[in-house]
Amino acid sequence: MAKPNKKGPSRTVDIFCAKCKTQLFKYRKGGKGALVKCFKERIVEDYTRVPCTCPECGQVFARDSLVRGTPAFKMVGGKVTFK
């Protein structure tokens, strides 16, 4: 399978915890669909102290995985929102 585009899209979105509304990431997202995964190389700013865990409420919002041979976070449904 093809690897994701290195540079990625120019549009950034802010990703928040759905429970406490704390900002988790600033991410370069492509397309207009739901947020299913975050490629680590596309994260512009990371506000978490422990990977995949909200710094405020401690909720686990994602799992560490490999997608198409590239490190990524797979989001747990309903745990994050973005705008």
Rank of each mutant, 00 (worst) to 15 (best):
K32R: 11
V36L: 11
F16N: 08
K26R: 04
K6H: 13
A72G: 05
E41W: 00
F39P: 01
R68W: 03
A34W: 12
E41Y: 06
T81R: 04
E56Y: 03
C20D: 15
G30P: 00
K40N: 04
G69Q: 08
T70H: 03
I15G: 04
K74W: 02
T53L: 07
D14H: 12
K37F: 00
K26Y: 00
K29L: 02
L35D: 07
K83S: 10
P55T: 09
V67T: 08
P9I: 06
T53M: 09
I43W: 05
F25Y: 13
S10L: 07
G31A: 02
T70D: 05
I15W: 02
K74L: 01
R68K: 12
G78M: 12
G58A: 11
T81H: 05
R68F: 05
A18M: 04
F73A: 02
D46C: 15
V50S: 10
V60D: 10
K29P: 01
V13N: 13
P51D: 10
C20L: 08
C52V: 12
T48G: 04
D46M: 08
G30D: 07
L24V: 02
T22V: 13
F82E: 09
F61W: 06
K83T: 09
Y47Q: 14
R11N: 09
G69E: 06
T70E: 09
